[in-house]
Write a protein that binds this DNA or RNA. Sequence first.
RNA 1: GCGUCCGUAGCUCAAUUGGAUAGAGCACUGGUCUUCGAAACCAGGGGUUGGAAGUUCGAGUCUUCCCGGGCGCACCA
Length: 658
Amino acid sequence: MNLLADLRRRFRIALELLDTGAGEVADMVLPSKDPKFGDYQANCAMPLGKRLGRPPREIAQEIVDRLDVADLCDPPEIAGPGFINLRIKDDWLLKNLSQKVPDQTQLGVVPTEQPRTFVIDFSSPNVAKPMHVGHIRSTVIGDALCRILRQLGHRVISDNHIGDWGTQFGMIIYGYKNFADDQAFEKDTVGELSRLYKLVNQLVEYHVIREKKIPAIEQQIVELAARLEQMHDATELEDPKDRKKADKRHRQAEGQLVELRATLDSLRNHLSAVENDSLLGPLASEHAQIGSAVLAETAALHAGDQTNQSLWDRFLPACLESIDETYQRLNVTFDHALGESFYHDRLAGVVEDLTERGLVRESEGAKCVFLKDDDAPFIVQKKDGAFLYATTDLATVEYRMSEWTPDAMIYVVDHRQSFHFKQLFETVKLWGYGDVQLEHVSFGTVLGEDGRPYKTRSGTAVGLGGLLDEAVERALKIVCENDDARDTPLLSQEQRQTNAERIGIGAIKYADLAHNRTSDYVFSYDKMLAMNGNTAAYMQYSYARVRSIFGKGDIDIDSLRSSGSPLQLTHPSERALALALLQLSETLQRVATDFRPNHLTAYLFELASAYSSFFEHCPVLKAEDAGLRNSRLLLCDLTARTIARGLNLLGIEVVERM
RNA sequence: GCGUCCGUAGCUCAAUUGGAUAGAGCACUGGUCUUCGAAACCAGGGGUUGGAAGUUCGAGUCUUCCCGGGCGCACCA
């Protein structure tokens, strides 16, 4: 049962009766923000008033006259400029809530009438390097969207587009050939590969800094300094406006200069740190050509070189295993994990096909799809003949379309790649896939407490495993402290550990999902593990608290659920809770339309608040009579199940006691 | 330079995509355990939504111009 959808359906009918085509404003029926305006409000009379050239209040009245909601709402009220306020009848709430009581699986969420097929592309780690903080958002948001869309009855195909064919593999191949420790490799393959990756990466980075970055910055500094000189000459401008502008530019340029010098210093420090390192220093000078050597190893792999291919075959399973460990811990699964290598032999065909259709033009030796004249083209083949990210993405689209014919393809990838996806989507349309909905579900950056992207003190990316470890560790500390503070502790050591795992991982996921995905957010263990506010820990606590009632009262909730014992609403807070319980369905629908899981966290938090208020005003175990007691127990049960289901749809587990 | 996103309470974030008096948590002040879990709850103070103008019944949201930032812009992914 989707209450909001039902109301909108009824409004659509009334609106069409009023004026053909007016049904489209039925979406302006929304839940009210303030209870004094009722439960729902329809705001469609105002725009319609404009369109029909008549007073909106008059229109509102005519809508109400044609509206068939007598079974659902009290008589609608018209307020202000033409708002129509709706209050759901208690009878109707009771009837629908009762249907949810025995519904174990769906909790009253009805499958959509128009199921669609979604391909969701998310997580996409590079296998040779360890997963880091940058993978959290894609993984967590993508997984939540899969779960929610499935709950709504859609067909969802999740696909992890793993980076298993790129330069990182060239790095570990080069590393293996030059620096491998065979014993370590036998003992701990993943650990050794990871060491090799880091080592080679450091060496490559050293030479890039030395030969490219530092000269580039030095030149920028020279140019900027020269520009500053010229600017001095321009301070004698007549027009105050021009002078102000010139001043601003001057200030900005000075700022940039300071920044560039600081960067230069830190890069030089980095170089000398490597040079003075007893291990890295000699290796750096011995492997002066490491950058091009790594590219050569990568190219050899792509060209089918026997040795490199067999190394790849040996390395890949170990890499995947390590990634799977993380996914297991996060409780994330995929239907497919078709990485870049899967598409390798299709890339030439993609370029051929695009060329045949006249979409490709050669420019500076590269094969490009030009989309807008003044923009950079979408390059599908480099001048050296190699294919790129863009080519693989196109091959992926082609494969998914032919294999699954989806209605929508969703990429959960950070916002920095929006230009790439814009180009990809435009190219795909030109290529002939006009119907499929292509969506870049982008998200912002995870920041540290200093407001800069979250990094370790030394400036490297924070590993995902360590991040989870720390969250769990902190959760364990909190769990133990609180349990020890009780007269008689509730939890065994084992339960404490399980709880800490669920609470810690849940905290990270929830914090990520609770923020509007398009904005950056500041990562803070203290905030995400707080017991107050919109956090996983608070929701898990709410759940455990509700559930404890059944133990305390020695209630067999399963049999009460199937007993047919009726519900009743005797207090405003009881009614508010009932209404909230009925709004899960429309909330999920809302998450699905704009791919924003934070609507669901907000809903859960409001539900928990509604429960708090109910719990304060309405004695449950000590209710006046047995009928009311049973009714309230059932409300508790529905609350617990709704919280558990909501969290589950976010990929978070509950705990029975904490 | 071009493109794009952002600026909301002291701090961290919401705001149903143009709806009614901009909401939460933290922090601050005060109140709740002799009745269901106080890891909690309730109440209070705190805002020119970066600034200015405009569009309209109605603007945090749309337009224009400023101020301040993030990110991306040809052969990496």
